[in-house]
Amino acid sequence: MWQFFHKLGSPKWFYSISGKVLPYLAFVTITLLVVGAIWGLAFAPMDYKQGNSFRIIYIHVPTAFVALAGYYLMATAGAISLIWRMKMAGIMLKVTAPIGAAMTFLALFTGAVWGKPTWGTYWVWDARITSMLILLFLYLGIYALMQAFTREDLAEKSAAILALVGTVNIPIIYKSVDWWYTLHQPATLKLTEKPSMHPDMLWPLLIMIAGVYAFFALAIILHARVEILRREKKTGWVQSLLKS
């Protein structure tokens, strides 16, 4: 068990394992996203209230899920890098921030476009939307903070602290639809309850959620591999990798 953690913290081990996993993960990701998108766009039934605009859900909900999950990952990586100084944790902290920001932006953007035909406006200062906007700023702030330091260890330390402080926003986002009953509808999917959606609508959503999660993992691996090479370029294993 401890050996596993030890390996997980090693950039060399991560680089070689992720290189083997990458083609399979890419295949799974593309399949899920293509199947999910076509099903959602062309085959899922129309929503009786919202019409066809509800098809935006297949981008909106998965990206919003991953935007939040990404923050967990980033904050956990930040905590690990603060406490144990694990090399991989610092790399994860750094690469998750821009990807998480992209996902949060997509969730906000698709929400805004969906809002126009449904609510009649692109933007309202609703609790859920505002707390998601704060999440976007947190991601961007952490990314900017990392770029602001020339010393990598200082950059990691301060970004990790900001990431941990920012976790206060996560329960606010989750609970915002219950605490302040404003425009944004309550959660469609709950782990503890039977979904209220029709299966024909639900299946493509579940496939898209799995697909966007898979894509998130893929993007993190791709970015992390570059970051590993950049940091370890002087080490023996990278040099021997180049010669082969």
Partner: peptide, 17 residues
Amino acid sequence: YVWTTYLVALIIFLMLA
């Protein structure tokens, strides 16, 4: 509305990869 969101998502995903 629908196609705009799918297009923007596609562009961002491709950029990230």
